[in-house]
Nucleic acid binder design. Structure first.
Length: 681
DNA sequence: AGTCGCAATATTTTT
DNA sequence: TATTGCGACT
């Protein structure tokens, strides 16, 4: 049973209609959502009428599990926690008549890009004039849909830094019509092939609910309470989706404006400020006692926030009192940084009585953690990464999934192309010729035999074998995967000669086990695309229906700051808090962007419970008063850098001990043996 | 003409 | 790691 303080209890037992709970970092945000759900269920609300919405599947299932553990006398099994996207997917699937979509395929970022490239090819005139990369067009389109602003305004904000002068307007008007053409083509392709992209899922549901009284009535029977986590990161599209529920359900929203870090996806933290105006019959409550960190960790976090021109009106106070001062470690380069961290972890593990799961390592970007992972592998430190490439996004998995996809949805051209070109001897040109013939065939008579008649020779034979392996086992997803893999194994090994045996092969038993949990091909494919919780890069195993990347319970977590929301750890490393990195040199320098970068760092700092270790790369050992390096000489970089005038009393500065491995000796990721060779018993 | 294989290259943040 | 470009092979 969890214990709650007075403010938390007031929120949990809230009796009014809608509530916004402003909860600072470490104040028990998740705990309160758990408490609220448990309270509602114990009060007699049927669990299936409570919907929890979170940002990641991981936090959704964490909350649901905790609620279940908290409830003794009532059944919480029907409690549903999901991401906005997965929830919409469930609604569309469960109410096919309401939303008018069936047998659709949800497409991931890669597929969206392929499709956009096709659209650009089809609308060559338009595309040629603009010379904007297809990925950029997708980003613009998605931003526009998530913020619900028009194309002109999107272009102004995303490509012209918000400028409103007439020259800018002219330039925008020059490319806008061409862009429109390409985007319309992209939409057309999606409809033709029964694709829904991420944004579509929300838009389909949102549109229907906003337009149709009848639809709202149906859903009002299904849901009574909606609990929303990370409210500060919801964007206008998500509001659009939630708004119709204002009169159907009671909304319980939790968020923290200082932790808003998703503006690139259209989120605006000011939305939490206008909650009361937006939602009638609503109240706002606050949590401000921090239970997570020691005062020293909060001091530096508070300092960072106070330096902002934005008023967050928040100063976290540590309920736990004082502890260790945060440490800044100045390292020469990334390898020294990685070795320092590995050394510190091993020392604490061997001598300090710490477990590997007491450590959390945070990075601004995924890519930056690569050398660290290499060193961990070499030093046998077990770790798991959050926010990396997903299991089902790996090339060899996608090869197999492509066959499942065409049988689930024969109009799925992206999957057809992958399937056909997988066979040795068929390239893009021949594949698209075959595809034209395949698509002109009535889908009801499509079979392995028909494919063989279209594609001559040994290639056709192979295509048929793969097809039959799945179509003969449509009803049994596991069997379909297993037979298909059997048929494809040799060619897979041939396609990935370098790392087949040691890396990729082992993923297929996992895929088969995963398949076992699904009763239809469509469900299996979609869930895989919408679930980002299973990352790649370790020995996979299953826990329930989730893929775990290591068989060892105890492991260090390496995460991007964005994926670390809600996480906490005894000892927390924040990587590379250097000039040009915080704020990132990618941010164009507008106040909004820089302040978002500040919040990213704030989120990172506030993850630590007892020890906060900030590393930074400089060419100088004394970062504060150096006048010898280029980075610190550049006044612009200097003044923007968040830790530039950090008061000395807030931190201890350190240089790594000698004795770490020299950079040139650091192994490259390619050479490393995945076996931990470590006894964790 | 189409396909394959090697080498170079460039990586914010996420559903 | 995955995509892209280029030369060579069928």
């Amino acid at each position: 049973m969890e214990e709650y303080n007075k403010e938390q209890l007031e929120a949990i037992n809230f009796n009014g209609k809608h509530l916004l709970l402003l909860a600072g970092a470490g104040t028990g945000k998740t705990k309160t959502i758990v408490g609220r759900a448990a309270y509602l269920i114990e009060k007699g609300v049927p669990a299936e009428k409570i919907q929890i919405l979170t940002f990641t599947k991981r936090s959704a299932s964490e909350i649901v599990e905790r609620v279940k553990a908290n409830i003794a006398d009532r059944d919480a099994n029907a409690l549903n926690g999901s991401t906005f996207h997965s929830w919409c997917n469930q609604l569309i699937t469960n109410f096919p008549n309401l939303f008018g979509a069936s047998n659709f395929t949800v497409i991931d970022a890669d597929d969206q890009l392929s499709l956009m490239k096709m659209a650009c090819g089809n609308e060559n005139q338009g595309y040629g004039k603009m010379r904007i990369k297809p990925q950029k067009i997708l980003d613009l389109f998605s931003f526009a849909r998530n913020t619900r602003i028009n194309l002109t305004e999107t272009l102004r904000r995303q490509m012209f830094n918000g400028k409103t002068d007439s020259d800018t307007s002219e330039e925008i008007e020059e490319i806008r019509p061409e862009l429109e053409l390409v985007i319309r083509e992209y939409q057309k392709l999606k409809v033709q092939q029964k694709y829904l992209d991420y944004d579509d899922l929300l838009i389909v549901v949102g549109n229907r609910l906003n337009k149709d009284e009848e639809a709202r009535k149906i859903l009002s029977k299904a849901f009574e309470y909606i609990l929303v986590d990370e409210m500060q990161d919801t964007n206008p599209l998500q509001w659009f989706l939630l708004a119709p529920f204002e009169n159907i359900c009671k909304l319980f929203c939790v968020g923290d404006d200082a932790q808003s870090i998703y503006s690139f996806r259209g989120a605006d933290f000011k939305n939490v400020h206008s909650f009361k105006d937006r939602v009638s019959d609503s109240e706002i409550k606050k949590l401000d006692k921090n239970y997570r960190s020691t005062q020293e960790i909060l001091d530096i976090s508070n300092w960072l926030l106070e330096k902002s021109p934005i008023l967050y009106n928040k100063k976290l106070h540590a309920h736990r009192g004082p502890g260790k001062k945060p440490v800044i470690v100045n390292v020469a380069n990334q390898f020294e940084e990685a070795n320092y961290i590995a050394q510190k972890i091993l020392k604490d593990f061997q001598e300090g009585g710490k477990g590997f799961s007491d450590f959390l390592i945070l990075s601004r970007s995924q890519y930056y953690t690569k050398p660290l992972q290499a060193v961990f592998l070499q030093k046998k430190i077990p770790y798991e990464t959050y926010g990396g490439r997903k299991f089902l996004e790996a090339a060899h998995i996608k090869d197999v999934i492509a066959v499942l996809r065409v049988i689930n949805n024969p109009l799925d051209q992206i999957a057809w192309m992958r399937y056909l070109t997988f066979v040795h001897g068929i390239g893009a040109v021949r594949a698209s010729n075959y595809l034209r013939e395949i698509l002109s065939t009535e889908t009801s008579i499509l079979s392995g035999e028909v494919l063989k008649s279209i594609i001559p020779g040994a290639e056709g034979e192979k295509i048929k074998t793969y097809y039959d392996a799945v179509s003969n086992n449509k009803h049994n997803v596991k069997m379909a995967v297993s037979k298909l893999y059997e048929a494809m194994e040799l060619d897979l090994a041939l396609k990935y000669p370098k790392d087949w045996q040691e890396k990729r092969k082992g993923d297929f038993p996992v895929l088969e086990m995963l398949a076992e949990h699904y009763s239809s091909l469509g469900e299996f494919i979609t869930e895989g695309i919408l679930d980002n919780s299973s990352s790649l890069g370790g020995n996979h195993m299953l826990e329930g229906s989730k893929i775990k990347t290591t068989e060892h319970k105890e492991h260090v977590i390496i995460s991007t700051v964005h994926s670390a929301k809600g996480l906490e750890a005894d000892i927390c490393f924040v990587l590379n808090v250097s000039p040009k990195s915080y704020p990132s040199s990618y941010s164009l320098g507008s106040t909004d962007e820089i302040e978002e970068e500040r919040r990213v760092l704030y989120v990172a700092l506030t993850r630590a419970k007892n020890e906060l270790i900030i590393t930074r790369t400089t060419n100088s050992l004394n970062a504060y008063h150096s006048d010898t390096t280029a980075d610190f000489d550049d006044p612009e970089v200097n003044s923007a850098y968040f830790l530039e005038d950090l008061p000395e009393h807030l931190v201890t500065q350190e240089s790594p001990d000698l004795g770490y491995q020299r950079p040139k000796d650091a192994p490259t990721p390619n050479k490393i043996d995945l076996d931990f060779g470590f006894d964790f018993s």
